[in-house]
Amino acid sequence: MTTQAPPLLRVNRVSKWFGEIVGCRNVSFDLHPGEILGVVGESGSGKTTLLRCLSGKLEPTSGGAEFLSKRHGPVDIFQLGEQDRRRLQREEWGFVHQNPRDGLRMRVSGGANVAEPLMSLGGRHYGQMRRATTDWLERVELDISRVDHKPRNFSGGMQQRIQIARNLIHQPRLVFMDEPTGGLDVSVQARLLDLLRELVRDLQLSAIIVTHDMGVARLMADRLLVMKNGDVVETGLTDQVLDDAQHPYTQLLVSSVLQL
């Protein structure tokens, strides 16, 4: 079924240089509807840089990325004007940051954080938005009696749940996640990953997940992109890349993890 559908995102030779420092270099891939792509690689390999470029937060030095937008049809993300790009980010994408503080408004309540995307898309009926918010908080398994508390009163795992709800409530087609479970302790991380996995499948989302954790990659991703020093050194089905790694660097990455 997914074989016929055109790609949601076509990335073509995206490079980003910070002066002499390479962020990422000549990255190309297609992302299909409903597909989850994992981006793995060691610290400094360019994962975040790539994600920031593709999500329109950072202008690449060269390259193109064509997104199949609901509003515009196929558009090159980097050619869009700022206004259209911001609208695309608001309407069709989500971005889950590693640190919830970067993805939440710490001055407003958890509930309002979740409801904001609805208001940004023109929601003007309080009661309807309140209901949608409560539904979503239940979906991410947060105690809804605390919906009006400020995020700083929540634990890291709870903040991350709020951030996830905030990024899914408007039913985006593509979600970018940068180490979504990075700063959390292991048991919290496992539950959150389970939840994410369920949501992504249920909503038929496409997602790009950056992680340096091979276990996270195995659980979440259909396909992997392995990065080293800004280059993609290997791609393939997740289980194939992890079980039969071809590139020396991938073999090193896989072997340094005890149990997958």
Binding site: E82, G111, M119, S120, G123, V147, D148
Partner: peptide
């Protein structure tokens, strides 16, 4: 500034939302 430039005023409703919630 960008919000004014592109008429993105959803955020202002967040303050009203907070108020009604409270």
């Amino acid at each position: 500034r960008a919000m004014h430039a592109y008429e993105e005023y959803g955020l202002q409703y967040v303050s009203l939302y907070e108020s009604v919630s409270a």
